[in-house]
Amino acid sequence: MSLVEISGLEKSYRVGEMEVPVLKGIELEIEEGEFVALMGPSGCGKSTLMNILGCLDRPSKGRVLLKGRDLSRLSDRDLARIRREEIGFVFQSFNLIGRISNLMNVELPMTIKETARNARSDRARELLESVGLGHRLDYSPSNLSGGERQRVAIARALANDPSIILADEPTGNLDERSTTEIMEIMYELNVGGRTIIMVTHDVETTKDCSRMVWMRDGMVQEVTS
């Protein structure tokens, strides 16, 4: 059984009276431990696919199985639980909460999961140290550079030890050096056994990927290894 099995996935949005199709029948399987790069021009449906994989959105048609469970049949509550425990998000714009410390940002998924206070504080500290930010625990994310912020975001994504990392252009807002740093961390995570699905425009960042999925106009156009 694959980790992710997508078959006949369609997604359309209503814009006024019109039904606008965004995904038009995606077929894709992703195995555990893969590092998949999702590529394609703007508007081809990469982000929509990521949102559905990330349980933030529901398919209009077709099936998405995650560890054998059909996402379209799960309740909102179950979807939230999957987001919390099985998926780690890394966004292009970091999406950290600026008015709380880095430590609390990393703790947040564990706070929501109601992990005991000491345990989550220890884990958050450990994670921030592992991405080289052990000296920035009590800083606000707004006092960090882009690369540092993305490292905090990665630490947060790992908080509840998810099996899948969904990264939506994680280096899109970063300079070259930070990009290299972030991609090194991603590579290490993959080596450590986590499945990574990453949307990217930058071919440079795909050198460690096990597979590249090219999308065009709401369909998977080509898969290359």
Binding site: G54, A80, R83, E85, F89, N95, R156, N160
Partner: peptide, 8 residues
Amino acid sequence: VMKAIGAT
């Protein structure tokens, strides 16, 4: 953000 990281 909170919803994305799993808040119901």
